[in-house]
Design a protein around this nucleic acid. Structure first.
Length: 582
DNA sequence: GTGATTTGACCGAA
DNA sequence: TTCGGTCAAATCAC
């Protein structure tokens, strides 16, 4: 018997062996998935169909053993991944001996789990799994041997390449997730599954590499869930998987504490923590899912967290994300170099947002208005491998150290990557300002003169002015109920004429993460009913998108504590996305 | 005339 | 040596 790292292995042999090991593991995991998909809970015999399903029932004790074993396996994967990152970070090009030592170290840790391997052979049906009774506790899984029950799991004979992943065959993650889990409904209705449902584009096929939640456990109180999911996001779009990954805002309790705010459209579970194993770059940055290109585009030490995440699957912003890193560092008991500490400190002072240019409001300056009035441009720089120059701004208030770098993304120049460095120490640190009413009205009048009532309505609605609705009525006429909401006016304008009498009814709103760690977007469905002799009786429109963003916890607290109305949320919407159905 | 922006040069980090 | 961040003189807009 030969073990990885136990002999004189060439690099090619190591690669081949690791590839074989992982391929076997993936096949086992896929078959486990398939088996669980066939499984019907024994507690609900009435829901079972024929004898095939009867045979598929697995005793709960065995399921618990499976779960413990799977958790154990995932923890080892995580440990191996951490070790691999450590090796790569400490030695960009480790000699084979280092690889062997690393493999030996991991193998010793995994001594209770890994069995001997024969050198490269075609994948075979594994031997029958010999097991004993499962342990009642799944804690301390790293130190615990979690045997399997005697289960006959039919494995495919064909290779992975010839057998697409179930997710690639058309199953969406949310449906997989819902079907695969047997826990409380709160899991299915969690923000993550909610986002999974909300995120895919209508016509998009799931990514070929798939993505799914693989593991859910409850930690502490029942209301708190630790969601651990692995997302394989090698494909770039069309799922925009990256837009929902590593979303630390879901751990933001303020959001739950202020249900009256727009964010209350999110499910109201009380406390979530998320652990993300892998994710890809923001879709707006990585047209080719090229981490290296994305890294170049992100640029600068301020985005170290994103870069690390791109390369190694580190969660952005979430406190849970760093647990393994902290654990790893404490295990090694090492002192971080001064330069690294300083870089981290600098990183903590910076924040990257993705902001969309708002037509009408931001057209003049050419960059999104974040509400701060004191930005002064002090530089402009062409950045390598980026199509657009990066602008450098700093707060013009004396002794204020706040800066920001603004760069259009290559994929969509109307979306800007805005990197904030340093905090405002000036009194004008509030993130939003109100546009001068005269300017707003002048712009809106211009739009009306050009026949673009929708743009005028949007400009007014986005002006943060409490008189916007009245201005809109006076400028655009009509009796548009809910005239302050851009989606309504946009839908109405999509009919080319403003109706004389319109009533509206909000049917639903779905909030989802749009881009960046502190931004959400809403898709609304609104019914517009017209009376008074119109040929149209009702229209249901869907597709306008509102976003709200904030740059820090403090900003959010300020935002949440304000007495704001609906118009005080930055609102954008895409006219082309409106779908009116008559 | 004043303030904001542009742009080439400079500098430090890697 | 390269690249990104900053400076400051020149230029522009109001």
């Amino acid at each position: 018997m030969l073990r990885l790292g136990g002999g004189n292995w060439s690099e090619a042999q190591c690669v081949e062996k690791v590839e074989e090991m992982l391929s076997r593991a993936i096949i086992h995991q896929e078959d486990l998935w398939g088996m669980l998909m066939l499984h019907s809970p024994a507690a609900d015999p009435g829901a079972m169909g024929g004898p095939e399903q009867q045979q598929a029932v697995i005793p709960s004790m065995v399921l618990r053993a499976l779960m413990a074993k799977l958790e154990n396996s995932m923890d080892w994967c995580h440990l191996a991944l951490c070790r691999l990152k450590e090796i790569l970070s400490n030695s960009p090009c480790p000699p084979p001996a280092s690889l062997a030592a690393a493999a030996r170290s991991s193998r010793e840790l995994a001594a209770t789990t890994f069995r001997d391997y024969e050198p490269a052979k075609p994948i075979q049906r594994p031997q029958q799994l010999i097991v004993s009774k499962p342990s009642p506790s799944s804690s301390s899984k790293l130190k615990q041997h979690t045997p399997l029950s005697q289960i006959h799991v039919p494995l495919r004979e064909e290779s992975l390449a010839s057998s697409p992943h179930p997710l690639a065959a058309g199953l969406q993650p949310s449906s997989c997730f819902s079907a695969g889990q047997s826990g409380p409904s709160t899991v299915t209705d969690s923000p993550w599954s909610y986002l999974f449902r909300a995120t895919p584009k209508a016509s998009a096929a799931p990514p070929a590499t798939g993505g799914t939640m693989t593991h859910i456990t409850h930690q502490g109180q029942q209301s708190a869930q630790h969601m651990h999911f692995v997302m394989n996001s090698e494909s770039s779009d069309p799922w925009n998987c990256t837009d929902i990954i590593s979303q630390p805002t879901f751990t933001h309790k303020s959001k739950v504490d202020h249900p009256e705010r727009a964010l209350n459209h999110l499910p109201r579970e009380t406390s979530f923590s998320c652990r993300v194993e892998a994710f890809a770059a923001p879709s707006c940055l990585t047209a080719g899912a090229d981490a290296e290109a994305a890294k170049r585009q992100l640029g600068g030490k301020a985005q170290n967290s994103e870069i690390a995440a791109l390369e190694g699957g580190i969660e952005l912003g979430s406190t849970a994300s760093h647990s393994s890193d902290v654990q790893d560092r404490s295990r090694r008991n090492t002192v971080r170099p001064k330069r690294e500490r300083e870089a981290t400190a600098e990183e903590e002072k910076s924040e990257v947002q993705y902001q969309r240019l708002r037509p009408g409001l931001d057209a003049k300056k050419g960059i999104p208005d974040d509400g701060h009035r004191g930005w002064k441009k002090y530089g402009n720089k062409a950045i390598q491998n980026a199509n657009f120059c990066r602008g450098y701004y700093k707060c013009s208030i004396k002794n204020c150290n706040a800066k920001k770098m603004v760069q259009p993304t290559d994929k969509d120049p109307s979306i800007f990557q805005v990197t904030y460095v340093g905090k405002h120490t000036c009194s004008s640190a509030h993130p939003r300002k109100r546009q001068p009413r005269a300017n707003v009205m002048a712009g809106a009048t211009t739009f009306v003169a050009a026949g673009d009532q929708a743009a005028a309505a949007q400009l007014l609605a986005s002006s943060n002015d409490p008189n916007a609705a009245a201005d809109q009525r006076s400028l655009l006429g009509g009796t548009v109920a809910g005239a302050g909401t851009p989606e309504i006016t946009d839908m109405v304008s999509s009919m080319d004429t403003l109706p004389s009498n319109v009533t509206t009814e909000s049917l639903s709103e779905q909030w989802q993460v749009l881009t960046g760690p502190h931004e959400t977007a809403a898709t609304t469905t609104t019914r517009v009913t017209m009376t008074g002799g119109s040929d149209l009786e009702s229209v249901e429109g869907r597709g306008s998108t509102d976003t709200t963003s904030w740059s820090s916890d403090d900003d959010w607290k300020n935002f949440a504590s304000e007495d704001v109305d609906e118009n005080d949320i930055y609102s954008y919407f895409d006219r082309n996305s409106v779908e009116g159905v008559i």
